[in-house]
Each structure stands twice: as structure tokens, then as C-alpha cells.
Design a protein around this nucleic acid. Structure first.
Length: 301
DNA sequence: CAACCGCCCTGGGTGC
DNA sequence: TGCACCCAGGGCGGTT
């Protein structure tokens, strides 16, 4: 699944292979790929033709290329999206959704997406806290690799929520870029169970898990960068070579690299959470609905 | 407003 | 061999 490090690899690839080039035509092969572009595919293609691609930016898992007139082409890879740079004439990928052709007859940019959770759209740039971002993602918080990311402020935001720590880590409006894989890895590094209530964690503990998330994503970015290929802006929608370095994610039954206990898998939000039963014990108190507080008034029987 | 739930979607894998 | 089913899951709209 593309999370922040994978999307950053893609961003770098786009900056290297697409920046500065002029689009000639855009072909939408699957309408779902532009479902968030409400005016539809004719409008999408029509407005992109002839435009010059400028800088490539990223916030969390969102990626965009700036165009002129304060507009941007915004993309999200979803679960299986890829942006590939391919020579024209290369046979279409099975799940090719959008083809971007350039006026210089050079390599095409292709949006390929098996599960169609990802997509592209045109959007206006707006200024949020001094940074221009596409209007549609104005609610997405800065990610830990953003130079203006503030750890103390993110800690305060997370602790202000009454929820489980993993839910908070995955909430892109609190801190962005973290998905299921890096959330599990960060929680393992910080020795926290995913169900720990954020509002009962010390600021130091929350800072620790956020720093762990940053660390593990920086390491993954290093590993993902090594799998970079001139033609492929990104690889496979997976974590590059970093999957070899995962401590718990997807490692059910394998020994915890720290203590050797078998990694457990628990259901979490209709998906899975991986953790070490010894290093990350279940919390005594969960962040469930605030039922009768121990000291509160008691209903008569 | 915060928290949470259900849905979107496809194909690879598995069990019968 | 084939079919039914499960699973992966980020983001968002709707509801409480």
C-alpha cells in the first residue's frame, strides 16, 4: 500500500521525468479514476491539454503537479495506484486508467490502478497556513516530513482526541502520511498497543510514537529509493524493499524481533492490526464510549 | 463538532 | 476445474 514513503518516491520520479513538460492530450480509460473530478472526463482532458507541468508537491499521501493559473493536477494512489513513465507504444497495462501524453513525444505518464481506490482530479490551489495546497485537501494535516511540521503541536492535537492511539495516527486530518503499515511499525517501536486511549498517554509517549513513525518512514524512503528505476516512477504500490525490514506488519506468528514472542494479529476497523503480545500489552482501560465514570453518580437499581 | 460506521472496488488466494 | 467467499484498505459521506 502506498503510504508517505512510497508516494514520496513517486513524487521524486515525477519531478525528474515530468516537470517542465507540456501535456498534449489526456485519455481517461476508466471514469472511476476521475470520479472526484466532478465536471467529468471531457472537462478533465480538455483543461489539461496544452498545459505545462511545473513543480511536483506532496502532502501525506496526496500528490500534485502545479499548472499555471493557480491550478493543480491532484492525485491519490489509493491502495493499488501507480504512476508509471512509459515510452509511447508500450503495450497498455491491464489496469491502465489514464494516459497523459506530452507534446515532446517523450515518455507518457500512465495512471494504473487495479482496485480503483485512487484517482486524479483538477483543483485550485489555496493557501493554508502559508502553504499553497489543492482546495480539496485543505483539511489534510502536515506530514512529519514537512519542514513546517511541528511535533509539539501534533502531540497536542492527538492528545486532545478521545480515541484509540492507532485511530488517531491514521486520521489524516491530525497528522498525515501514516497508513496501516507504518502505524503498526511505529506502535511496535514505541511499545504501545493500538487501543491505548490518546487522552491517557503522556505527551512524551505520544511524541515517542510520532517520532517512531517518522523514523520508520524515513528508513522506508531510503529503501524505496533503491528500487527506483528510470522508467518506473514507482514500483508496485508496495513498500519497495522495505517489507524485509518490517517488524510486525504482516508477520503474524513470526517472532517479535525484540523479544521473540509470536506476533499477533487482531481485527481492527474491519482490517488487521499486528503487534507483539509482550512488548505491546493490551491496555487495562480502553477509550470506548465514556460510560459511567467510576466516581460519577450512580443510577439507582 | 467529534467519533464512528459503512461503502466504494477488484483480483489474488483459499477452501470446498 | 470451478465456484463462493474472504481479504487487502484510504477516504469520505452520512449518522449519531
Amino acid at each position: 500500500m502506498p503510504e508517505l514513503p512510497e508516494v514520496e518516491v513517486v513524487r521524486r520520479g515525477l519531478a525528474a521525468h515530468v516537470s517542465g513538460r507540456e501535456l498534449r492530450s489526456v485519455e481517461v480509460l476508466h471514469p472511476r479514476a476521475i470520479r472526484r473530478h466532478l465536471p467529468g472526463s471531457t472537462d478533465f482532458s480538455g483543461r489539461l491539454a496544452g498545459r505545462r507541468v511545473d513543480a511536483v508537491s506532496r502532502r501525506g499521501k496526496y500528490l500534485w503537479v502545479s499548472l499555471d493559473e493557480g491550478e493543480a493536477l491532484l492525485a491519490h494512489l489509493g491502495m493499488s495506484g501507480q504512476l508509471l513513465v512509459q515510452a509511447p507504444g508500450t503495450p497498455d497495462e491491464k489496469h491502465l486508467r489514464i494516459r497523459f501524453s506530452f507534446a515532446d513525444d517523450g515518455p507518457e505518464l500512465r495512471f494504473v490502478d487495479q482496485r480503483t481506490f485512487g484517482g486524479c482530479m483538477l483543483d485550485d490551489l489555496v493557501e493554508v497556513d502559508g502553504t499553497p495546497v489543492p482546495a480539496l485537501i485543505a483539511h489534510i494535516a502536515r506530514d512529519p516530513m514537512d519542514p513546517l511540521f511541528s511535533l509539539p503541536s501534533a502531540v497536542a492535537t492527538l492528545r486532545g482526541r478521545r480515541t484509540e492511539v492507532k485511530r488517531a495516527l491514521l486520521d489524516q486530518s491530525l497528522v498525515s502520511g501514516i497508513g496501516n503499515i507504518y502505524a503498526d511499525e511505529a506502535l511496535w517501536r514505541a511499545k504501545l498497543h493500538w487501543a491505548r486511549p490518546t487522552d491517557r498517554l503522556s505527551a512524551a509517549r505520544v511524541a515517542e510514537v510520532l517520532s517512531a513513525a517518522t523514523e520508520v518512514m524515513v528508513e522506508a524512503l531510503g529503501a524505496g529509493g533503491t528500487s527506483f528505476d528510470a522508467l518506473y516512477v514507482n514500483v508496485n504500490g508496495q513498500s519497495g524493499y522495505f517489507d524485509r525490514s518490517l517488524a510486525v506488519y504482516g508477520q503474524e506468528g513470526l517472532p517479535c524481533p525484540r523479544c521473540g514472542r509470536p506476533v499477533r494479529r487482531e481485527p481492527f476497523m474491519n482490517r488487521s492490526s499486528y503487534s507483539c503480545p509482550r512488548c505491546q500489552p493490551r491496555p487495562r482501560v480502553t477509550s470506548g464510549p465514556r460510560t459511567a465514570v467510576a466516581s460519577g453518580p450512580r443510577k439507582p437499581a
